[in-house]
Amino acid sequence: MKIYNAKPILIGLAIFIGLATFPLWFNMGKAAPPPDPKLDTPVIQRMAVKQCIMPKDQMRTEHMQLLNDWRTEVVRNNNRIYTASDGKQYNMSLQNECMNCHSNKSQFCDQCHIYAGLQADATPYCWTCHIAPKENK
């Protein structure tokens, strides 16, 4: 078998493969430490039953959806109280409810978001408007 114009084709192919795999070898050997979200805030420690508004696994996969639904309800429908499946009521507010317990944004939110390759403070861009609690570091 004979390849016509072999030289430019092979060079082009090499450049293409190099570029396409750039993210892989650029990050080689720089494995990010696995996320370790901390729950040991003063408020959580004082709680008798350490329970969020939904079970942990559900929160892990659905918190973005929940927050989005909450903002729609609060901003557009003026509903501010959420009744969880256990009957407990919550104020639907990231800044005034979620962050009350999870007052450690850098140890809680950022842990996974940074691990997942999200730019801190840029995506999800909650914190360009909402104010995170002050943390003592």
């Binding site: 429908n77 501010r80 959420y82 009744t83 104020n91």
Partner: peptide, 9 residues
């Protein structure tokens, strides 16, 4: 629906 306005509103 699990949402409602605040009763104090």
């Amino acid at each position: 629906p699990q949402v409602a306005p605040d009763s104090k509103a």
